[in-house]
Design a protein around this nucleic acid. Structure first.
Lengths: 253, 253
DNA sequence: GAGTGGTCTAGACCACTCA
DNA sequence: GAGTGGTCTAGACCACTCA
């Protein structure tokens, strides 16, 4: 099976150009406010006019900064109501990182089930991907995902113990094993982006049993690095999906 | 193996709201000019000031329309030079629809090889996906793709014969089997978007041989519907990839 | 009706490209 | 230096939400 360490970091950003427009500076200030928790997921940020006064720029410049963050799904604008920090707390957005869909129908129901949770040391690969020292403490949890009543995904998640101090089985189950919502509400860690690597692999004995497939059956393997504000990596994930009646959906262009 | 007919059409657009802002009307006019070939891939469109005069709106309104098309990779802005119609003719953009990457390195070299090309009748599923009458004439071609010298993808492409009248082996090989570039230059069909469904499947005997894997080995199956301007479907594709040393890359969020 | 984001304009000036 | 897209402003008015 392919090592999760075979994943690469997200492409580094190109070197910042000498000239930085005002709206990008405003965007950086807004991102800072989000990262420090000044505005929390689900909450409104100040109105454009108020932000314009605060930063001493025109409303148009604020708009441009906010628009970029909205196009990255970091903020959500609602005409007539305000601009809100995106959140994984709502049912609709819980699915935004799940690309697995049943072949003929929509996702009606999602039921994650925790298998186990334990501490482990980061190997060199995991440490590198998470920007930690080798041997740093990780939390590893495993779960299955049933879609519309059918168990089709088995995944292993690794988190830096530092940032998720105190995470235990009780906390996870209390949140119904909805991880991104849990990270947000219990640890102030908002997942905003991820990069995935997908492969076809053969089911090993353990995974086969958990997904009720034959050992050796083809499974879709998904490896993910997930990022919080500022492209900081905070979660590693490797999942296996039985794609006989489901698929990984992706739009190009 | 899953039928390509199991694919679904792209989500239909939500019903157009009663209120349509000016810049969307401008965007529609620009899209029309692109679809009719007034401006062809690689060519510049008129400057923003000129378009503003033509459509009798402000430059800002033109900018907003152009910006949306640029964010959809339909147009490409180049500061100081102008705004250009996106094209598959350049090496960089030829890869924009290819999500397969070698595990440890970048794609340095891409070598497609045509296997065969023939006419066939559309089955109900293909006709439905392409918006054709059942039994309409299709062109089916098959090819392999070598990445950095290693043959890892085998794919079958189906096209409506009507729109690609006269497409034959000589034309394809003359273009080095670079399909999207060929569609563009020889048929005026610019591919601008696609939706894919990815699964893990077992290699059948024929595919296994073409990719030099064991029959039954796990392969990544990619099914695609590709669209030209205005979300018109114009190509069906099904590919298989040996992912032992390659992966399907995808960014989330 | 007050407050929000959304659209549109006109105009100034900047960054960049190319002859 | 002329022409392009990129930024920024100020201000008017519109669409929408909510009390």
């Amino acid at each position: 099976m392919v090592q999760i360490g075979a994943m690469m970091k997200r492409e580094p950003l190109p070197p910042a150009p000498a000239f930085q427009p005002l709206y990008r500076q405003i965007k950086a200030l807004l991102t800072e406010g989000l990262a420090t928790g000044e505005w929390r997921p689900g909450e409104p940020i100040p109105s454009e006019i108020e932000l314009a006064h605060r930063y001493k720029v025109s409303q148009g410049t604020v708009r441009k900064a906010v628009s970029e963050l909205a196009s990255e799904n970091v903020l959500v604008r609602r005409q007539g109501r305000g601009t809100f920090v995106a959140t994984h707390a709502h049912v609709g957005t819980q699915l935004s990182f799940l690309r697995i869909t049943p072949d003929g129908e929509a996702v009606r129901d999602l039921e994650p089930t925790l298998i186990d949770l334990r501490r482990q040391r980061a190997d060199a690969a995991a440490a590198g991907l998470l920007g930690l020292a080798a041997g740093a403490s990780l939390i590893r949890l495993r779960r299955t995902l049933a879609i519309n009543g059918r168990c089709v995904v088995f995944e292993e998640v690794r988190l830096p113990a530092e940032r998720f101090r105190g995470l235990d089985i009780a906390t996870v189950t209390a949140h119904g094993c909805l991880l991104y919502s849990l990270y947000e509400s219990a640890f102030g860690v908002k997942i905003v982006a991820g990069s995935e690597r997908v492969k076809a692999v053969c089911a090993d004995a353990d995974t086969a049993q958990r997904l009720c497939v034959q050992p050796g059956a083809p499974l879709l393997q998904m490896e993910r690095v997930a990022y919080t504000y500022g492209e900081i990596p905070v979660e590693l994930r490797r999942g296996f999906c039985d794609t006989r009646m489901h698929h990984y959906a992706n739009d190009l262009g």
